[in-house]
Design a protein around this nucleic acid. Sequence first.
DNA 1: CGTATTATTGACCACTCTCAAAAAACGTGG
DNA 2: CCACGTTTTTTGAGAGTGGTCAATAATACG
Lengths: 244, 244
Amino acid sequence: MPPFDLVAERDKGESAGLPCAQCEQGDLAFCAGLSSEHVRRLVSILGQVQVEPNTTVFREGDPAQHLYSIGTGAVKLYKLLSDGRRQITAFLFAGDFFGLSMHGVYAYTAEAMTPVHLCRFPRRKLEALFDEVPKLEKRLLGATIHELASAHEQMLLLGRKTAREKVATFLVTLWARLVGDGEQPAQITLPMSRSDIADYLGLTIETVSRTLTVFKREALITLPDANHVAIKQHDALARIAEGS
Amino acid sequence: MPPFDLVAERDKGESAGLPCAQCEQGDLAFCAGLSSEHVRRLVSILGQVQVEPNTTVFREGDPAQHLYSIGTGAVKLYKLLSDGRRQITAFLFAGDFFGLSMHGVYAYTAEAMTPVHLCRFPRRKLEALFDEVPKLEKRLLGATIHELASAHEQMLLLGRKTAREKVATFLVTLWARLVGDGEQPAQITLPMSRSDIADYLGLTIETVSRTLTVFKREALITLPDANHVAIKQHDALARIAEGS
DNA sequence: CGTATTATTGACCACTCTCAAAAAACGTGG
DNA sequence: CCACGTTTTTTGAGAGTGGTCAATAATACG
């Protein structure tokens, strides 16, 4: 796990063309729907960062100097107990952002699961920009409220769902997140390991594996290989996920 | 559980003096640290609401028309599964607020645990006020980020802590929240039932009760009665809470 | 192709849940 | 103020879901 400082940083917007040009985001990203002038302002303060899989972007407790927006790739956020027990609090994908914090210190660790392209906003400069472009702050508030709602949903899962319900919820939710607009791919690629799934659902890898096997036996899903899932009976899975 | 419409609503700020005058909040509340002009603007849009214990303020799925700030009392937020399983996502106290939502619909139910005094801000008017007083929006963003951090902490608890660690965490955290500034009361009053504690920690009432009994036997706490706890060995409890 | 890592499967066990009963606390009306 | 019924909490016994430990299988990687 190379230290963060070693990751490559591309040229800023000043010198190159707008980096957003090749940014494949639709209305997902931070800059979506902003006037080109506002986008220019944003670009002038952001840095672009390429992160390799299994690289830590920042650690819980680090001084929170940046806000990150995911251009491409998948990121996990997690917290640890002193004896190593881990809770993954979120899997994030293109268009999501992370790194908000109170008290100037990150409350969780962020780690890339795939090759990740990040836009990095210096906290101070971003806050200064808020005063000029209030729309930005509104967007950030909206996104944070959305994250909070996801967190509540996850608390319900962790506290009150069975292993079977947890795994079904995971599959259905990930499916909904990865299958963007209307397209219905035959299968989805899991960017995370069984260990990650277990730590996200409050289970062990054995229970996750066993439950997936059960779903396969029940013909609810197929597992072409460990990192690919095809959902065969979405409605049935969704019913299991809701506990009915 | 009387419908929400029947709760009493006091006079608005216009007619009476500033309701904040008798509001006992320090720098906790929404209005803390604002200029008196800004407070006046806030007061002009807020309604004050008195809610009896066990009254539902709003339900998950209701149109989200108001943001609430707690003046006095204690509130619980929760989500339900269709078969009645419940996860309490937060216990809130004086100075906290709730009712933020995406998509115009509340994501959880809010219910008073004690007599509660609320300030109620109409969402539309509050948003209009944000454009004039950006400080308000910043404050709301800060508070939401704080809530999100609490949610992450609770996910770690729900997913990865043992019953013993959960109850210890609950006691230490509640103690820290209720014992505000320096004062060290001999005991704290639990505004919530064992059932509430269980649904907050992802346990059953039996396990909560048994664990409290064990802590009592170990002389970590005393239980004068069911609703009062005195923490006798805070450090030991805190160590248990952290899982070491 | 051999090694290391990850995922699956199996046997057993324990933590917490379930079901049940007793005890305590609370509320109500006489 | 006390007797009564109701609700909440505590305690007990037994069971089950998911965890632990261990071995095998599959995959990734050099």
